[in-house]
């Protein structure tokens, strides 16, 4: 600490410990190594996945599952993954904004905190239970709805053919319900942080509640809503069990969502096939896992980037 140039007497014994104090060194060492363990672990995740995926990357295309090579194996799954996640996002985004608004600005305060707790509880329900509920209750319940969509909106490229309870549409809806709590929680937090002064200024000018929300709450919460949506999208992309249970996969590309003709998702494909796989098949599945890892990584980093940009702009945080 101090670098003095003057000559000084040796410090008196009363104030010195002779450089000991093991407790401090041990504690510091423990904390630092805990941090390093985490960094190492993440490095290992990437390294081991690459190592296990490598044989599939260099393998003869004929040896890879499906016999047409890695790209042909992963591509439909990637399409299926993105499709299911997008349906989920489209379902959950407006609903999460509505629910968050209801909790933050419409419900009586005492009810609001209870409702917030309820939403948090919903977030804790294990995904396998959502899957079982989806296949047992929502799937059959959606058959007439999907039928109605084919009858009345059949001219759209999304509906047609024979409806299945195990369709992409049902899967996406269940995923949407699953990511609803996390997105609602993010939106609720952001809406509650709207500066009161902005809200009161708007109301004082004679705005109705909805006009106040348009003028004060949404502009303030825009980036929060986007980052919440990205977090939800990341979850939906990586969700495994619900998709594995509900979706009946095929290996075709089609825009029709209500039949069982859509490709599966990467995560569900791994869960369904990994337990029975060996040899090059394991490497292929790990390679597809790696693709999923980078996909979610990009989405999540985009979300963080938006959050950090927001905190730079608003002095409040």
């Amino acid at each position: 600490m101090s670098t003095s140039t003057q000559t000084r007497e040796p410090a008196a014994a009363e104030l010195t410990t002779g450089g000991r104090r093991f407790g401090d060194q041990i504690f510091r060492g423990l904390s630092t190594s805990a941090g390093l363990v985490i960094l190492t672990a993440l490095f290992l995740v990437a390294a081991f996945l690459l190592w296990q995926a490598w044989p599939a990357l260099v393998a003869d295309p004929a040896d890879v599952r499906g016999g047409k090579g890695l790209v042909h194996y992963i591509a439909p799954l990637l399409v299926g993954t993105v499709m299911a996640a997008l349906i989920a996002l489209l379902t959950a985004l407006p609903l999460s904004i509505g629910i968050a608004l209801f909790i933050s600005h419409y419900a009586p305060r005492r009810l609001a905190s209870a409702l917030g707790y309820l939403v948090d509880l919903l977030a804790a329900v294990p995904s396998v239970i959502f899957g079982l509920w989806g296949i047992t209750v929502l799937g059959p319940g959606m058959i007439p709805v999907q039928g109605g969509l084919v009858d009345y909106l059949g001219w759209l490229p999304f509906f047609g053919g024979t409806s299945s309870p195990r369709s992409m549409l049902v899967t996406g809806l269940v995923l949407g319900i699953m990511i609803l709590p996390i997105m609602t929680a993010v939106n609720r937090e952001v809406f509650l942080q709207t500066p009161r002064l902005h809200e009161e200024a708007s109301l004082a000018l004679g705005a109705t509640r909805w006009e106040m929300i348009k003028q004060a709450v949404f502009p303030f919460g825009k980036s929060g809503i986007i980052s919440g949506a990205m977090l939800g999208l990341g979850r939906a992309l990586g969700e495994t069990m619900a998709v594995a249970i509900i979706l009946s996969p095929s290996v075709r590309y089609t825009s029709v969502l209500n039949t069982s003709g859509n490709p599966g998702t990467i995560a569900a494909d791994i869960a369904l096939n990994f337990p029975e796989s060996s040899g090059i098949d394991v490497n292929t599945l790990v390679a597809s896992g790696l693709v999923l890892f980078f996909l979610t990584l990009v989405v999540n980093m985009f979300a963080r980037w938006i959050v950090s940009r927001r905190s730079e702009f608003s002095g409040a945080n």
């Binding site: 101090s2 003095s4 410090a11 104030l15 450089g19």
Partner: peptide, 27 residues
């Protein structure tokens, strides 16, 4: 934060070599 110079407590330099700040604070 760092310091140059000396602060002596009855002649003992509290910034001397080997001085433990924890013990300084007990005094």
């Amino acid at each position: 934060a760092k310091v140059k110079g000396s602060v002596e407590l009855d002649g003992q330099d509290m910034y001397g070599r080997g001085v433990d700040p924890v013990l300084v604070r007990r005094k």
